[in-house]
């Protein structure tokens, strides 16, 4: 496990961290691209399409933390790490219930 100097040690990552980092990077890149294009079009006066693109970008961003918890629960289940698989599902349920009750009022 422990190899070489500090820099190599810094780069050595657990699979779960790597997978989640990739997922979050993908989410933020797509969101940033949609937002940039949307804002650019807005300044050029395309007032119909631009807000839709911006909203799409915001929705992608909103989806990333949810996807992150889903991904974690899948990884932990695959690794048979039942404690953490269960914890992830508790988090997901609480999030879902929060959305459900939040919409109520």
């Amino acid at each position: 496990m422990v190899v070489g100097n500090g820099h190599e040690a810094g780069a050595e990552v657990h699979p779960i961290e790597l997978v989640l980092a990739r997922l979050l990077r993908l989410g933020s890149l797509i969101a940033a691209a949609l937002l940039t294009v949307g804002i650019a079009l807005m300044t050029m006066g395309m007032t119909v399409l631009a807000p839709k693109l911006i909203t799409a970008g915001l929705l992608v961003l909103l989806g990333t933390p949810v996807m992150r918890v889903v991904a974690a629960s899948i990884i932990f289940t695959k690794e048979r790490d039942w404690h953490f698989a269960f914890f992830s599902i508790v988090v997901l349920c609480a999030m879902a219930a929060g959305i459900y009750f939040g919409k109520g009022d």
Binding site: G10, A11, E12, V13, H14, E17, L18, L20, A21, L24, R25, S28
Partner: peptide, 8 residues
């Protein structure tokens, strides 16, 4: 998070 996850 991307940078923080990579740096552990």
């Amino acid at each position: 998070a991307v940078a923080f996850l990579r740096d552990r």
